[in-house]
C-alpha cells in the first residue's frame, strides 16, 4: 500500500484531459449517498432479526428503530435503483463499460495483482484501469445488481415469487442480500482507502481531471 502511494508521488503532473465525464461523476456520488443510506438503514433492519450472532451498533445504523430503518431503506431504494439504471444504460450506451472494463483476462489479473502487491503498479494514467481495477469494478456492478434483485425478492416474496425462488427461497434470499451488502462494504473499504492513497483519482471523480 505504502509503495503504491510512493510511486504515485513520483508521478508526473496529470494531463488536462477529462478522466471522468460529468455523468459518471454525478451517478457516482448519487450512488455513494444512496448506497450508504441503504447500508446503514439495512443494518437497522438486520438488528430486528439478526441472521448471525451479532448486531450492528446503534451509532452506525440509520432510522433509530425498525420502522425508521424501513422508511429510510424503502425511500433510498428509489434513489439507488433509478440512479443505478441510469448508470447501466449510459455505461452500455456510451461504450464506457466495454472500453474501460473489458477485456478481463485471468493472466492480466494475476500479473496486476502481483504488481500491486509488490508496489509496481502504475497509476500514471488514470484513464486506463489495470486488470485488478477492471475485475473489481465489473464485479461490484454485478454485486450491485444482485443486491437489488435479492432485496426485491425479500420485499415481494409473493408477487415476485419466481425471483425469490431464484435466490433459494425467502430465508436464503436474506443471506444472499446480506452477503452482497458485506461484499459492497468490503469493496467500499478498499475503494476509499485506495482513493485516499492516490488522491488524484479522487480529484478526477470530483472535478473530472
Amino acid at each position: 500500500m505504502t509503495s503504491i502511494s510512493a510511486s504515485d508521488s513520483r508521478a508526473v503532473y496529470p494531463s488536462a484531459k477529462v478522466v471522468q465525464p460529468v455523468w459518471v461523476r454525478i451517478v457516482h456520488w448519487v450512488n455513494a449517498v444512496a448506497m450508504i443510506m441503504m447500508i446503514m438503514s439495512g443494518w437497522q433492519i438486520y438488528n430486528a432479526s439478526p441472521l448471525f450472532d451479532f448486531t450492528f451498533s446503534r451509532s452506525i445504523t440509520l432510522g433509530g428503530w425498525l420502522a425508521g430503518g424501513l422508511l429510510w431503506h424503502f425511500a433510498a431504494m428509489w434513489l439507488l435503483m433509478v440512479n443505478g439504471l441510469v448508470y447501466l444504460v449510459l455505461g452500455f450506451a456510451t461504450g464506457r463499460f466495454r472500453r474501460k472494463l473489458l477485456p478481463i483476462t485471468p493472466s492480466g489479473v494475476l500479473a496486476d495483482t502481483r504488481a500491486a502487491l509488490t508496489g509496481k503498479l502504475s497509476h500514471d494514467d488514470l484513464s486506463t484501469y489495470n486488470y485488478v481495477q477492471k475485475l473489481l469494478y465489473a464485479g461490484i456492478i454485478v454485486v450491485g445488481i444482485v443486491v437489488v434483485l435479492s432485496g426485491l425478492s425479500i420485499w415481494k416474496p409473493v408477487q415476485f415469487q419466481w425471483l425469490t425462488a431464484v435466490f433459494g427461497g425467502y430465508d436464503f434470499a436474506r443471506y444472499v442480500h446480506f452477503t452482497c451488502m458485506a461484499l459492497i462494504v468490503a469493496f467500499l473499504v478498499v475503494h476509499v482507502a485506495l482513493a485516499l492513497l492516490v488522491p488524484k483519482s479522487l480529484r478526477a471523480m470530483i472535478i473530472g481531471r
Binding site: 438488528n47 430486528a48 432479526s49 439478526p50 448486531t55 446503534r58 432510522g63 433509530g64 428503530w65 425498525l66 425508521g68 422508511l71 429510510w72 425511500a75
Partner: peptide, 18 residues
C-alpha cells in the same frame, strides 16, 4: 431488539419526507 428509541423523530422534515 427493534424498539430502542427513535432518532428519526428528532428531525421533523426528514420524518415528513419519509
Amino acid at each position: 431488539t427493534l424498539l430502542t428509541g427513535c432518532d428519526v423523530s428528532d428531525s421533523f422534515s426528514a420524518e415528513n419526507l419519509l
